[in-house]
Design a protein around this nucleic acid. Structure first.
Lengths: 167, 167
DNA sequence: CTGCTACTTGAAGTCGACTTCAAGTCAAGC
DNA sequence: GCTTGACTTGAAGTCGACTTCAAGTAGCAG
C-alpha cells in the first residue's frame, strides 16, 4: 500500500476505529454489512481494519453531509479504486458533483433566509404579501399579490380575501 | 377574524387543505395529533380548517427547513398568539433565531465545500494533508500536519505514517 | 334515493440509520 | 490460568415523520 505495506500494527480493532472515526462500533458493523467498509479477520474471528478504512469512512461521512444516503455513498465509493489513490480525474468527478449539491443547498438556505427577512419587515400582517404564507398555499396564491415560494413547485389558483397571521 | 370573521366558505376540508398546502391528508391528521394544527368539526364529524391553518403549516414547514423537529416547531408555534397576528417583536424573536440557524448551516456547507476544493487540488495523495481523511480521524490526526476538521469536535492524538487514499 | 367520492378511526407498516440485547468467544495483563 | 474488557453474532428495538390499511360514515350531484 505505502512504503512497506500494512504491518500488523497498522491494523485497527473495531474499538480503535470507532474511537478514531467517532462512530460507534455498531455503526461500523452496519457499514460493513452495507459494503461500505471491509475488514480482515484474526484467527479468533475479530475484525481488523487498515488505515485506509478511515478514509473510506471520511468519504462516507462527507457524502452524508452533502445529502447522500449510504446506498448512494456506496455507489460513489465503488467508483473509486479500491487499492490505490484515485487519480485527479477520478476524484474530480466526485468532488464536482458534490460541489454542485452543496451549492444548491446553500442557495436554498439563502432563499429561505431572504423570505424570513421579508417576513420580519411585513410582520406577517398581510396575507397577500407574506411569503411564508404564500409558501404554504401552493395551490392558492395567485392574483396580483407577490408570490415568493419556499418550494420549487410553481403554483396557481385563486387568491382569497385578506386575513391576519393567526399564530 | 378579519373584516367579518370566517364564513362557511372560508373553511377548508382536509382534502382542500392538502391540495393547497402540498401535504397529504394523512400528514395533516398527523400534524393535528401533534397539536400543530387544529380543526373544527361538522355535524358529521368531518374536519374543517380556517385559512389561518395554512399559515401555521407554512410556519411548520419553514421550521423544518431550518432543522427543527415537529416537536420543536410546536414549541415555537405555541409562543405565537393563536388568534391574532404576531407583533413585530414576537415574530422578530423567532425569525432571528432561525436566521442564525440558517447562517450556521450555510457556514458549515461552506466549510465542507472549501475542504472538497482542497481535496481536488491534493488528489488525496497525502495522508497528513488530506482534510477529508483528517475529518474522519478525529482522535488520530495531530503532529505537524495541517488539520482541517469537517466536524466541530477538536481532536488530538498521534499521526501515523503516510499512505494513499485507497478508495 | 342512489351512487359516488371524500371523509372518519386506530392500528400497523415503512424508511434510513443506527442501537440494543443476549449469550457467548477472544486477547492480554498479572 | 484467570480475570477483565473488548470482541462476536443475529434479531429485535428505536426514532422521526409519515403512509397505508380496513371498515365504516358524510356530503352532494343527479
Amino acid at each position: 500500500m505505502s512504503v512497506h505495506g500494512p504491518s500488523r500494527h497498522d491494523l485497527l480493532t473495531i474499538g480503535q476505529l470507532a474511537d478514531r472515526s467517532g462512530l460507534a462500533a455498531s455503526a461500523l458493523r452496519y457499514y460493513e454489512k452495507l459494503g461500505l467498509i471491509h475488514a480482515t479477520r484474526t484467527t479468533g474471528n475479530q475484525r481488523r481494519y487498515t488505515r485506509g478504512t478511515l478514509r473510506r469512512i471520511a468519504f462516507v461521512r462527507a457524502a452524508q453531509r452533502v445529502g447522500l444516503s449510504l446506498d448512494e455513498a456506496k455507489v460513489a465509493l465503488d467508483r473509486l479504486p479500491e487499492h490505490r489513490a484515485p487519480s485527479g480525474a477520478e476524484w474530480d468527478g466526485v468532488a464536482q458533483s458534490w460541489q454542485s449539491r452543496i451549492d444548491e443547498q446553500i442557495a436554498e438556505l439563502e432563499r429561505l433566509k431572504a423570505k424570513l427577512t421579508g417576513c420580519i419587515g411585513c410582520g406577517c400582517l398581510s396575507l397577500t404579501r407574506c411569503s411564508l404564507y404564500n409558501a404554504a398555499d401552493r395551490a392558492g396564491a395567485a392574483g396580483p399579490g407577490a408570490r415568493y415560494l419556499l418550494t420549487r413547485d410553481p403554483a396557481t389558483g385563486p387568491e382569497p380575501s385578506g386575513a391576519t397571521f393567526t399564530g
